[in-house]
Design a protein around this nucleic acid. Structure first.
Lengths: 231, 231
DNA sequence: ATACTTATTGTAGAATTTACACCATACCGT
DNA sequence: ACGGTATGGTGTAAATTCTACAATAAGTAT
């Protein structure tokens, strides 16, 4: 085999850290591997990139095949390429994270693995390959990003209460002290792209909260004026 | 050819955006391609990743072969993998940027290209492949990163004046208004990891400025206390 | 000595951030 | 219907940080 040929004995994949927010906690969607290597282990959903497929497209495809969702938030984070990260050959993987609204989809593990389900982030451990490292990178990126871009809204249903929104930020940021309720509301409302609906929360055993929604158009206008989201 | 084999008909490379600061301006180190494709065009220094080489190692190697420098700041930025980005086959490339002190090295283009030299950032245009896009990404990353980590110091010689430091930040950030001199000094000095030397600037036709240096150890101590660099 | 160039320094007003506690309103049991 | 319980909703004062701004100092060049 010529030297140049040996360069082409490698493959690349995408792996996707899919975040969701449920029961006041950050969750991620994992698959259970149905084949060697790491058979039976939980892993990030991912796949080899097709020869004529762009990287972003591959990441979108993985997400869509698993959840049926399209057009969700997706961001490339980092590429992992240690020589021995994959037991079967040289495979480098491009890590993405995506943010989905839990409940708006059905999970279809068939195309990937024997099963797939949401895991509380706090209960995730010992994933296949170098996926723990990948998860750490994506989580770190998410934590930084939610403070400078209104990504939090991607994880919530279209209508939500301010308490839910704060709970999300408390959960994602995982700060030693929770955010102050009054200050949080003041700041987020002062940004001007939350719209109050007439509706109230239902089915709770206490005073129901007002529902708000995120106005993407208004947010876009702020952007044009050089506005910087900063929580 | 089996399907699985077709996945392994691809290669990956690293490309390195090497930033330097010279004559009050941000510069980048480019090579001029000696072979097709894009023969004669200026391009980012890069190379295919060896079969048994980690990505970071490959990026370090490219930098060292070109400049002789080791241990400089290097950060992975993004991976580019459009299907047709390389005329000769499917090659995805992992982009890095590095920060070097101009003047502390000699450039050796031999291993890569017919020539290599520093270019003022403002004069760079029409690079080979998708390298303009890669440069844009790295520049954007640098702009964000210099505000939240003391990266600027990687671009300056060990001893520098506060004016040089500010000039660097003005140049990198490229804001509509320059930073205010008094406020900049106040803020950077209040951080506590700049150490004033007894020496003065030499060879200038005006009042010489005090020289300062960046105390990496002190900065590390701040980090342990949860300090956040924020310009 | 005079002109020239860059270095160095402080303050007051504005804006932002932080800390903090009580009443309101719904549901639920009884 | 009434009291208990749980979360929703709201303002202010003090501290801190940010911003704008200009005059003198210390060298070199002529």
């Amino acid at each position: 085999m010529s030297e140049i040929e040996s360069f082409f004995k490698s493959a690349f994949s995408v792996d996707n850290v899919i975040f969701g927010f449920d029961e006041g906690e950050l969750n991620i969607l994992l698959i259970q591997r149905g084949a060697a290597p790491y058979k039976g282990k939980w892993a990030l959903p991912g796949d080899l990139v097709y020869p004529n497929e762009d990287l972003d497209t591959a990441a979108e495809r993985v997400l869509e095949q698993l959840t049926g969702l399209r057009g969700v938030y997706l961001e490339q984070v980092k590429t992992f390429g240690s020589v021995n990260r994959h037991p079967l050959g040289r495979v480098i993987t491009v890590a993405y994270f995506s943010l989905v609204k839990v409940g708006k989809h059905t999970i279809n593990p068939a195309s990937f693995a024997q099963s797939a389900r949401w895991h509380k982030l706090s209960e995730v451990k010992d994933l296949a390959f170098d996926h723990n490292e990948i998860l750490d990178s994506c989580l770190k990126r998410l934590k930084r990003k939610v403070r400078t871009a209104p990504l939090g809204f991607e994880l919530l249903p279209p209508k939500f209460t301010l308490s839910e929104l704060q709970q999300l930020y408390d959960s994602v940021l995982d700060l030693p002290k929770k955010l102050d309720k009054r200050n949080f509301r003041k700041k987020i409302l002062s940004m001007g792209f939350l719209v109050e609906s007439a509706e109230l929360q239902e089915g709770v055993a206490h005073r129901p909260a007002k529902l708000y929604s995120f106005d993407r158009v208004k947010y876009g206008q702020f952007l044009n004026e050089g506005y910087v989201f900063d929580l």
